[in-house]
Each structure stands twice: as C-alpha cells, then as structure tokens.
Write a protein that binds this DNA or RNA. Structure first.
Length: 601
RNA sequence: GGGCCCGUAGCGCAGCCUGGACAGCGCGGCAGCCUUCUAAGCUGUAGGUCGUGGGUUCAAAUCCCACCGGGCCCGCCA
C-alpha cells in the first residue's frame, strides 16, 4: 500500500518536474528526523538544468504538485520537499498489514532458485565457522522465498574426500568404539589420524588406498565410507535442526561422479570450453585457458581434469553447477534422508525416486571468499558455453571466515574443539535460562531458553555483512542485551502479551490522532516489503537484522510512552492495531532470519 | 607481478550499491527511571581527523586515482 502510494506520488512529481517516473521515484526517501513522512530531493536533480538554487526550485514546485489522497501537505524545507501524510494513511497502512498478516511483504513469483550451503565435510561436527555459512545460507533461502523465489536449499556432501578416508581409517583401525554424538566422535578420530599421517608412512599409504577404493565405488570400502558419511551428516543435521536450519536435498559427491560427471565433462569438451594440453607443465590435463581474461596472474589456467584422468575439485564443481542450471540430461535418484522439525523431509541422492530438484533459474552458492577465483572460473566456463543468462544469475555469495582471537579454525588440528555449534548453543541456552524470570514454570524454561539461546547466536552471526571477518568471542556471540537477538524477541513477546491480555479485537479508528512515535513506528512497518526485496536482490540478510532491530527500538519507545490497555476505548482499539501490526511485521522479519518467536520470556 | 575483501567513537557494528537535511546503533563510562501492558526495557550525557593524500562535484563516509595497515586468492589440494 505504501509502495503504491509512493509510486503515485512519484507520478505527480514527474508531471510537475518533467523528470521520468523512475527518477522521481528514486528521489523519494524516508526522512530521518521530523521532516514529514516522505522526502523528495528532486530539486537537486533539476538545479543544473534550470540553473537555479535547489531551494528555490523546491519552493516553486510546491504549488505545481497535484493533490494525492494521502498527502496532507507538501512543504519545501530548503532543497527538500517534505510530504506530510494524512491520518487516513496511517489508518489504511495498519489495516493493510493486518489484512496481509504472514504474507505481508511477500513478493511476486520470480522463478526457481537453488541455494547451496554449508557443504561441510562429513567427518566432524560443525564449528562456529560452518555455522556462519549455514545461518547465512538458510537466511538467504528464507528471504529469497519470501521475495517470491521458489527456493531449493541444497547441501553438497563431499563423501569422496581425503578427510572421509582419514576418518574411515580411524574408524577401522584406531579401535575406539563410537560414543556420544557421532560427528563429535568421528571428528576426534579424524584429528588423531591426521596427526599420525604426518609421520606414519603406513597410515598414509593405507588412507590413500582407502580413498582409491572409495573413488572406484561399488565395493565394501566405498559402501562403508558412504555409510560413515551419512551417519555423520545425520548427526550434523541434529545440530542443523537445533538452529532451525533446513534443506530440501543433499547431493553426495559419489553420486555426482557416477551420475552426471561424464556427461557433463563430455559436453564441456565438445563445446571447446576446455582444452587438452599437449605440452608444457600442464601436459595431459584438460584446462580452462584464462590467460586472456586474467592476464597478469601468475598461473591463470585452471586444470579441471588431471593427467591421470581424475577430476579436480573445480572440475567436479563445474559439472555440479551445470546440473543445477538444468544443462545436463542425467538426473539423480533420491531417497528420504531425514525428517526435519519443520515437517519436511530432506532427500538425499543415492535412492530410487526422481525429484524435481535442479533446473534452476538462479544459483546462489554460499562459499568462503577464498574461492572467489575458482567460482569466477566456473562463471567464465558458463559464458564460453553460451550460457550468458545463467552466468549472470550464478551468484557466489562469498563470506569471510570466523576465526578465534589468536588462531584459525582447523579441522585437522582440532582447534574447533570447544567451539562446535553444539557447544555454542548449549552455552547460549544455559545463559538464556539463567535470565528467565522466576515466575515462569520450570517446564517452560527449557523451551524458552532454547528459543532465546538460538536466536542470540543466529542474530549475532547474521547481523554483520558477509564480507566482514568475524572474530569469535563468547560475550559477543551470546549477548542477550542491547542490539541482540533476545532484544528483538523481547519486543515481540511484549507485543504478544498485550494482545493476549484482552479479548478485544484491534480496530483502527478513523478519528484517531496518531502520536509522533506511533507514526514513526508505522512508517517503518511500511518499509518492510521494499526491504525484503532489497535484501533478497543483494543476498544480504543482515539488512533485515538491522531493520528488525530498528523496528524493535521504535516499538520499545512506543511501549514506554503509549499505554495500550489502559487507554480509552478508541485509543485502545487503535493502539491494539499498532501492536498487532508490529507483532506481524517483526514476526515475519524474524522468521526470515530463522529466529524462533517465543510466547513468553 | 596481478586480483578480491576489510579499515567509521575505547571495543563490536550499520550507513557506501543509488553522493545531499546534524554520520547512526550496541557494549563499556557517567547520571536518572520498576506500587503503572514483562527493567532481556526506557531516558539523558560524554566519546568521531569516517585509514592517509589527491581528484570529480554546488555537495563525498559514499564515486575515481594513489598510498598505508590487516586478511585472502592466482595448486595435477579441497
């Protein structure tokens, strides 16, 4: 509704100024202070053409502006034209939000998008770093879905890597019985094997042999490795679920190798996107020649197939990405893998049933920024194959890694111990539970603690823009006050509580005179749909985190200044509408960030 | 040699895409507010050469160039 009004007003401005409607639209902004409800800076644009001072232009434009039903008055304030809305605008805005409810902010249908995350090796528990990837990916998937995309969240499971071979060796030879959570146990085996491999030639040789058998497939070792990987992923997904992170499908690398890899490689070869090197240091390899594009790089050519015929990581990834974009005939067969708490089954490759995964109009890969170059290589190959449109919608959502204050997380060295996603949540929940007021019954404390603890971590990870390094510190990750996840939940719970305390239905009075802090809050509620859109098209969920915080801040102010239940009838019913609208919009926003909405705190 | 990212208050961040009304927020500091819809809250206050230097512009944290500091990448590893 607000967006519609904005468009109508930009049309009026366009008529008065001779600007295009698009120019007029983008000259509109939400003013910061007490400068009305909508500000227009078109006078700046016109100043060079008309050779007059912007302030003079703004003043002269006022009488030329046609009336709009929501505009009470338009006045020039220096170079700005500030629009002040009628009370009717606020009435209609609240009605609109209440009518739309959960679908408020939902965008028009856009097509199919596949989001890949977090693709953790299936041989150890997730640590804080994997968690950042997963929270980012899950949030982006949620935001894209709300903005109108039909989203499939995919996880790539590298069950053919050296890491799994090492873990398998440990499983077979270290003689330890699995105990506790499987991923934690397996991770411990892996660290031990990795240590031994550095010095022990025998372990090295045996691990290599295991890896070879795994790659060959169809043998006892490969079956055992696959089983081990699946067990580990199931354990990792218990963590996944505890953070409300969900997937539609899991694609195992062993299935990529056996189902689509050769077809994909042949296609790339036939189209001359890659060449077989006859001489030089890459003799015998299939490479993408990138000397022209990346002229000054030390080694711009990228090997996709080694001289021994095996594929590199980028080689396999390229074929996988071609599958995502629907460029291959080969189809995976799926099996039900794990039932998720959101009620949906996640499917894994390696079964017997077809599924409509893939054929995506857009691909978003949540991968560390250290892989910018190989991802660029894949985009370049797409272009060379003539898939220009797909290349434009092939998105590498590059994020910076999480580190400890003094060291990096290393799977091999085991520096993740003490910082697994499970341990973070456990500690966060513990701290959250300590704060729950004494009158809440013990039976509910656990539920609330989980919701709050989870939100604290999700928020602290998602609120920073992805390209910023994140140094993990307990106090910051688990903050329960100020700009934190629980602050947002608290505002939500307070709104909810007001609604619960009365039987009365909200009803916006046409005669109501809105207070300034109410107007500010409602204006911000109106911004939600545009924000979803911007957040989706930039793949930046932190914009919604920022927005949710601002909204909660405005609500807290309203809460302190404007009594609801104690007010007179007209005021009360209208304010109930404000509370209800806030609850709706913040609820929608938090849901897009995967943050649970507690009933009380 | 080349490429990418980061640099905003003591600390942690938003704003940069699309230049414009006093650069916002949290933590920490200081001073207040609970017999009033939950104080995980609110109010006030102190704290800033927006890394540095140039340029473009009526106007630069925002765009361009150079430099400085930190991180990452250019592997027949993944």
């Amino acid at each position: 509704m607000f967006l519609k009004a904005k468009k109508e007003i930009s049309k009026i401005i366009a008529e008065a100024t001779g600007l295009t409607q698009e120019e007029a639209f983008s000259s509109l902004e939400m003013p910061k202070g007490e400068f009305g409800d909508l500000a227009c800076k078109a006078a700046f644009l016109l100043a060079p053409k008309e050779k007059k001072a912007p302030a003079q232009i703004a003043a002269e434009l006022i009488p030329k502006l046609k009336k709009h039903k929501f505009v009470e008055k338009a006045e020039a304030m220096g170079p700005y034209i500030n629009f002040f809305f009628t009370e009717k605008f606020y009435v209609d805005a609240l009605k609109d939000i209440m009518k739309k409810g959960k679908s408020y902010g939902k965008g028009k249908k856009k097509g199919k998008a596949m989001v890949e995350f977090p693709s953790v090796n299936p041989n150890k528990p997730w640590h804080a770093g994997h968690l950042r990837n997963a929270i980012l990916g899950d949030s982006v998937a949620r935001v894209l879905a709300h903005s109108g995309w039909d989203v499939e969240s995919i996880d790539y499971i590298d069950d053919l890597g050296l890491q799994v071979a090492q873990s398998l060796w440990g499983y077979m030879h270290l003689g330890n019985k699995p105990s506790g959570k499987f991923d934690h146990w397996l991770g411990a085996q892996y660290v031990e094997v990795a240590k031994r491999m550095e010095t022990d030639q025998k372990v090295q040789a045996e691990t290599r042999e295991l890896l070879k058998r795994m790659e060959e497939g169809n043998n006892d070792i490969s079956k055992k490795a696959r089983w081990l990987a699946e067990e580990c992923v199931k354990a990792q997904y218990a963590t996944d679920f505890s953070y409300s992170i969900f997937h539609s499908g899991l694609i195992f690398e062993s299935d990529i190798v056996h189902t689509i890899f050769h077809e994909g490689l042949d296609m790339v070869k036939e189209n001359n996107a890659i060449v077989l090197e006859k001489e030089g240091k890459n003799a015998g390899c299939w490479v993408v020649k990138l000397g022209e594009k990346f002229q000054k790089m030390q080694d711009p050519d990228k090997i996709l197939v080694r001289s021994d015929g095996t594929a590199t990581y980028t080689g396999k990834d390229l074929i996988f990405q071609l599958w995502k974009l629907g460029k291959l005939k080969g189809k995976f067969k799926y099996k039900p893998f794990i039932k998720q708490p959101n009620g949906e089954e996640a499917f894994a490759t390696g079964g017997t049933a077809p599924k409509p995964f893939g054929n995506s109009d857009m691909v978003v890969n949540v991968i560390g920024s250290e892989q910018i170059y190989p991802q660029e290589v894949i985009r370049e190959v797409l272009l060379r194959l003539g898939y220009g449109k797909d290349a434009a919608r092939y998105v590498h959502l590059a994020y910076e890694h999480v580190t400890l204050p003094d060291e990096k997380f290393s799977g091999r060295a085991g520096t993740w111990k003490g910082y697994t996603a499970d341990e973070l949540l456990e500690e966060s929940v513990r701290r959250a539970k300590e704060k729950i007021s004494k009158d809440v019954p013990e039976s509910e404390k656990d539920k609330i603690g989980r919701a709050v603890g989870e939100a604290a971590i999700r928020y602290s990870f998602v609120r920073t823009t992805p390209e910023k390094k994140l140094i993990f510190k307990w106090e910051e990750a688990l903050s329960l006050e100020g700009n934190s996840g629980p602050y947002l939940q608290y505002a939500y719970v307070r709104a909810r509580k007001i609604m619960e305390k009365t039987e009365e239905k909200p009803s916006i009075s046409a005669k109501y005179k809105f207070q300034p802090e109410e107007k500010k809050l409602i204006r911000e509620l109106c911004a939600f749909p545009e924000l979803v859109e911007r957040s989706a098209s930039a793949f930046r969920p932190h914009m919604l985190a920022d927005y949710s915080y601002m909204l909660s801040e405005l609500f807290s102010r309203f809460y302190n200044l404007c009594p609801v239940l104690k007010a007179e009838e007209d005021v009360r019913k209208t304010r109930l509408g404000i509370v209800k609208s806030f609850e709706t919009v913040l609820g929608n926003s938090l849901t897009l960030l995967g943050m649970p909405l507690p009933e009380k705190m």
